[in-house]
């Protein structure tokens, strides 16, 4: 069959359009993994913090201490250099947009533990230029400290202030080094890892285990019969700024 130059160019052009259209269809068809209740994953780790149980003993810091000791978190007196995984904040700072004159009277002096929300759609993951932070299939927002370049984009992106930067070498500020967990070094960002090293051996997070009042529940949000889902069914629960669309995995039972 003889083919003219015009026909050749027509066929080549049509093929290019067809190939391009195929790619476009595939790209549009792939939605972002959303981690919300309908994501289809088998596991999505979540935490429920019982405000009523926690407020009974506000002097208690067992969850904070357990985390600090498990993860070699430095205690730096200078607040500008503070490193936080789980820490306490007064009610009005945990839920700044859920305030009325009466809640202010009732709750403002009360203190709640806060930590990384391990969001379903984490803003920190989207902005990380090196994929040093990413979302695992089980819902844990992980960090690879080897890969973190310390750009702090994630800190700017996180609406909950859950991330801390190591401005100075943290080692001199660690009271008791747990040899089973690495420390971090100057120049990397860190945050709560939902005790992924404990989850790997079938243990609950250190804070959950340490709570004397059992105010912290940990479980699989995808499992309808899990302790967290039962707690979420039984009582009114809130999470921090759900309107941002981050879909947090940490809930507070009120």
């Amino acid at each position: 069959m003889k083919i003219t130059r015009k026909q050749f160019l027509q066929i080549a052009g049509a093929s290019a359009v067809a190939a391009g259209a195929g790619k476009l269809v595939t790209a549009v068809g792939q939605t972002e993994p959303s981690g919300t209740a309908s994501s289809g994953a088998k596991t999505r780790w979540g935490m429920v913090i019982d405000f009523q149980k926690c407020r009974k003993d506000e002097g208690c810091s067992d969850c904070l201490n357990a985390c600090r000791l498990a993860h070699n978190i430095p205690q730096i007196p200078d607040r500008a250099h503070e490193v936080k995984w789980i820490w306490k904040e007064p009610y009005d700072r945990v839920f700044p947009f859920e305030q009325t004159d009466y809640t202010r009277q009732a709750f403002d002096s009360h203190i709640l533990p806060i930590l990384c929300n391990h969001c379903g759609t984490p803003a920190c993951v989207k902005v990380c230029p090196t994929q040093a932070t990413w979302k695992r299939e089980d819902g844990v927002v992980m960090m690879d400290w080897h890969r973190c370049i310390g750009c702090r984009y994630c800190m700017a992106a996180c609406p909950y202030g859950s991330r801390s930067f190591n401005w100075i070498d943290p080692r001199p500020y660690i009271s008791h080094i747990n040899p089973d967990f690495p420390t971090r070094e100057k120049g990397v960002v860190e945050k709560c890892n939902f005790c992924e090293e404990r989850l790997a051996v079938g243990k609950p997070p250190a804070c959950v285990e340490a709570c004397p009042n059992k105010a912290l529940l940990f479980g699989n949000l995808e499992d309808e019969n899990s302790n967290v889902r039962q707690a979420l069914r039984a009582r009114m629960c809130v999470c921090r700024q759900p309107e941002l669309g981050t879909s947090p995995s940490v809930f507070y039972l009120m």
């Binding site: 067992d62 498990a70 080692r171 008791h176 250190a206 285990e209 340490a210």
Partner: peptide
């Protein structure tokens, strides 16, 4: 091993025993 300037608490013993 404990580094100097340590402020240990009662949770130390409880936790180091259960660390992975």
């Amino acid at each position: 091993v404990t580094t100097p300037g340590a402020t240990s608490s009662g949770v130390v013993a409880k936790l180091t025993g259960s660390a992975p």
